[in-house]
Simulated scan of single mutants.
Amino acid sequence: MNKQVIISIGREYGSGGHVIAEMIAKHYNIPLYDRNILDELSKETGNSYDVYKKYDEKPANPFITRTVLGQSNSVEKIIAEMQFNFLKEKAESGESYVVLGRCAEDILQDNDGLISIFLVGDTDVKQKRIMEVKHVSADEALTKMKRHDKSRKQYHNSFSSGKWGDSRYYDVCINTSRLGLKASAEELIRYIDARVAAM
């Protein structure tokens, strides 16, 4: 790309966020940042990837979290801030990329090249997809969906000024159940192309 573009994708669990993010990143031949950020942080700090993964995109526990002189004892908050700083540094370097979750539409809101997307889906379609991908029962899929979405919402809202999934805080919200993942990605690419042309 000749212009810097950062595509942030928020998503409901089971809506196909990672698949669509991969399609968009591949189309534009730009990096996708998701849990692979944890690999980079692990290399930089020498800390275990598994520790970072355990607390990734998790809200801080309000009962044990303390902040003294701007320093927090919350592992969740520390890891979140490390990822936010990673994304900001990439943005400041001029790099174009796709990022999944991590409050990117909020922490990068001052970047002129930011395009923010939120993906939703019908419960039955998401449930079926989770059953197929995770090889779990219908009840287990529904439980996973509710648990992950609750955690993502708490995480996002604790670090962001906007509310998770509120259409007013995103450029585009799309129900991936209507068109399917491939066609939804294609529609989003058309929108991104139009935005880039207007920059």
Results as ranks from 00 to 15, higher is better:
34 D>Y: 11
14 G>I: 07
144 K>P: 03
115 I>E: 01
157 N>E: 10
94 G>V: 10
90 K>S: 04
2 N>D: 07
192 I>G: 01
75 V>Q: 13
143 T>V: 15
133 V>K: 15
8 S>L: 11
124 D>C: 04
31 P>M: 11
96 S>L: 05
45 T>V: 10
98 V>L: 00
143 T>L: 15
115 I>H: 06
95 E>C: 08
165 G>E: 00
98 V>W: 02
130 I>W: 08
34 D>H: 08
15 S>Q: 05
50 D>C: 01
186 E>W: 08
166 D>Q: 00
76 E>H: 02
139 D>H: 13
91 A>V: 06
153 K>L: 05
75 V>R: 10
76 E>F: 02
16 G>N: 09
196 V>W: 05
159 F>M: 13
101 G>W: 10
4 Q>W: 07
58 K>I: 00
18 H>T: 14
61 N>P: 04
155 Y>H: 02
143 T>D: 15
122 D>P: 10
167 S>R: 14
176 T>N: 07
167 S>N: 11
39 D>E: 14
189 I>Q: 06
174 I>Y: 11
28 Y>A: 08
169 Y>T: 01
38 L>D: 06
118 F>K: 02
62 P>C: 04
158 S>G: 03
192 I>Y: 01
159 F>V: 09
23 M>A: 11
109 Q>N: 05
117 I>D: 01
57 E>C: 03
94 G>C: 11
59 P>I: 01
150 K>V: 05
19 V>K: 08
83 Q>D: 11
199 M>F: 11
133 V>L: 15
45 T>M: 08
118 F>E: 04
1 M>A: 05
115 I>N: 06
79 I>L: 08
44 E>M: 14
196 V>P: 03
141 A>C: 13
49 Y>S: 06
32 L>K: 10
107 I>Q: 01
31 P>W: 09
36 N>V: 08
160 S>A: 15
95 E>Q: 14
175 N>Y: 10
159 F>D: 03
168 R>G: 02
5 V>I: 14
153 K>W: 01
166 D>M: 01
3 K>C: 09
189 I>P: 09
74 S>L: 12
82 M>Y: 06
11 R>I: 06
161 S>N: 01
44 E>R: 14
103 C>Q: 07
176 T>F: 09
164 W>M: 00
118 F>P: 01
46 G>P: 08
136 V>T: 07
15 S>A: 15
48 S>T: 07
16 G>Q: 08
92 E>A: 15
155 Y>N: 03
17 G>L: 14
179 L>C: 13
108 L>N: 09
181 L>R: 12
14 G>H: 10
93 S>M: 12
37 I>S: 04
84 F>R: 13
192 I>V: 04
107 I>S: 02
102 R>N: 02
17 G>K: 14
108 L>Q: 10
51 V>P: 00
129 R>P: 09
62 P>G: 02
100 L>T: 09
109 Q>C: 03
28 Y>R: 11
20 I>C: 06
31 P>R: 09
149 D>N: 15
118 F>N: 03
3 K>F: 10
177 S>C: 10
131 M>S: 06
85 N>R: 12
45 T>R: 09
22 E>I: 03
86 F>W: 01
162 G>E: 00
103 C>W: 02
62 P>I: 03
130 I>D: 05
13 Y>V: 03
119 L>K: 11
115 I>F: 06
64 I>Q: 14
28 Y>M: 09
110 D>S: 13
132 E>P: 12
167 S>K: 15
147 R>C: 04
188 L>Q: 12
